[in-house]
Design a protein around this nucleic acid. Structure first.
Lengths: 336, 336
DNA sequence: TTGTACGCGTTATCAT
DNA sequence: ATGATAACGCGTACAA
């Protein structure tokens, strides 16, 4: 067992306060400092985190809440990358991370987090427009930052990408290469990402003076919905398809090729996310790259800023995205 | 802010001790219990975790340490699945999870964990035979369970799969379908999984009276090493290739087809892991399925058992695996 | 520069 | 059944 502060004090013939000072950098004579430090090393002393938290009023622990479907957790590297980005910054700041994933109802998870207490702050993924878990966190006294955002709550701090802008960019790219009947397979309804990407698509189409009748079909971010969605859009005579993410796009590609059509000659195809496999599809997929890991570090940074100055008002960050043009929209281009 | 026990006591005109009793289920008159419970609800009281930990001597927090390369974290769903399995059991037991991933050196991470203290137990992935992080954890006073194991340490509790047995099974399957020159692309050297799978391969070959000269090439669990490794093995006249994991196998498949060879007619191919994509390769891949999520819940269960009875000696669990036969080894078989 | 003493919020022991 | 009171280990004004 690690010794207590009192025991160190006894061993080194000073008061507990002095020992505390050499640990936390208070004023102490060089001679005694060295003596205490020696004993500290020898005894392999480690301060008790609970006692420290109790005395100081903060724990150095940040909660990370990713309450998403488990099958999504598996198939998508998004989760791992985001976590890595968050963890990068936390470890840099000597903070620890307490993690919750979605194996309970949102209400139970919320209760768990609040009951656990002593969290300096919380980072939570906010995919859906309505979410009791996010609501509860925001309503609590714990400083909270969202990954993603909800238009409904203007007081919340968040880090997100500009989904509408990015979708607009992709769609405009399809317009620019001469497509007229550009279809869109949406993401899962109720998610901010899906709604905003749809908005961006609509905006670009309208600006180009193109109609969208019969060219919007509902998907759910999964590959399967790309397969069925593409079938509908091809029947509607689409000459381009913008999928709400790359998983859908890979499904759409399957449908297109099954019909003997060529990409991009007959149908141009674009996705969103730039997952690992997207560059290795045949043909490689035009898509939107979002730096997920960077998103993670950014949200952690925002949280620390919030902790530093709690009265500075909500922080809102929109991270840039990048249109990655590959052969699924521009056939003869050289490989990148 | 959540009120303190003293404040509740004042509001309800009883002592702090009594309030504590109604919370933790001590003997208390039904009348007062109801009265206190009411105030507890109204004030939305939440016990202070740090104070509780300090008083009780345990925190209800379990550390989970996955110190692996970040690119491995991304490409492999193993991480997410394992985490999910662990989390399933932890949340069931009302425990919280503190997570460390590998964005520091192992020594720094170890120091972080130990410094954090107040962890009831730790679960750590032990991929390499030598690992200062695992060593440090085992040497500490914190109850620790490994995912994977190291032959060197007989006192450690762990949960693993029987890699040698599984590899033996795959190799024997290849023998059974008539292959004689069965090559093996190993995993990353120094990892227990790679060594044990190699051992199993060797064992099966020897039992079948087959030679392995020139049929073993070193890989590193990545797709790229499958590509180059397969080239070497084909040059050596292999009529079957057993890869240490599915990622390698997908690379090997690329090489084989690039040479105009047919799978399984010219070269049979097998992997290990049964990742999501493995069933969708062309042809679908014969491989070993290991229930990673189950592995996660099992290791958590083992930890709790260890906490319940610390003197029960080390717990060692080998989870079963399953040979999944697909068309990459048995051509004409119906899809499953 | 150093020591004393109190507070942090709970649990647990001992009286009553 | 209930109420004092002592831990739990540490930080920190305040005093010396």
């Amino acid at each position: 067992m690690t010794p207590t502060l009192d025991e160190i004090a006894a061993l080194t013939h000073v008061s507990r306060a002095t020992v505390s000072r050499v640990i936390n950098g208070g004023p102490v004579a060089e001679a005694t400092r060295r003596r205490v430090l020696g004993v500290l090393e020898q005894t392999n002393y480690r301060p008790n985190a609970a006692a420290r938290t109790l005395a100081m009023g903060h724990s150095g622990v940040v909660g990370v809440v990713m309450h998403i479907d488990s099958h999504l957790l598996f198939q998508d590297p998004y989760f791992a990358q985001l976590l890595q980005g968050i963890s990068d910054v936390l470890s840099e700041r000597e903070a620890a991370m307490m993690l919750w994933v979605g194996n309970r109802t949102k209400e139970e998870t919320l209760d768990n987090i609040l009951r656990r207490g002593m969290l300096d702050g919380v980072i939570v993924t906010a995919n859906y427009q309505e979410d009791p878990l996010v609501d509860g966190l925001l309503a609590s006294s714990i400083p909270t930052v969202l990954v993603g955002h909800r238009a409904a709550d203007p007081t919340a701090s968040y880090v997100d990408i500009d989904n509408a802008h990015a979708a607009d960019t992709v769609t405009s790219h399809l317009v620019k290469i001469g497509r007229r009947r550009i279809g869109h397979i949406t993401g899962a309804r109720g998610t901010g990402a899906a709604e905003d990407r749809l908005t961006g698509y609509r905006r670009a189409m309208q600006r180009a003076g193109l109609l969208t009748d019969g060219l919007i079909v509902e998907g759910d971010f999964n590959r399967a919905s790309g397969i069925t969605g593409a079938a509908q859009l091809l029947n509607a005579g689409a000459d381009a398809i913008f999928c709400a993410n790359d998983a859908e796009a890979s499904g759409a590609l399957e449908t297109i090729r099954a019909r003997g059509l060529c990409v991009p000659e007959d149908v141009a195809l674009a996705g969103f996310d730039d997952l690992e496999f997207s560059a290795h599809l045949d043909p490689p997929l035009t898509t939107i790259r979002q730096g997920v890991r960077q998103q993670g570090s950014e949200v952690a940074n925002v949280l620390f800023e919030l902790l530093r100055d709690p009265n500075g008002g909500p922080r809102r960050v929109l991270l840039p995205t990048e249109l990655v043009i590959r052969q699924s929209t521009v056939g003869g281009v050289q490989r990148g």
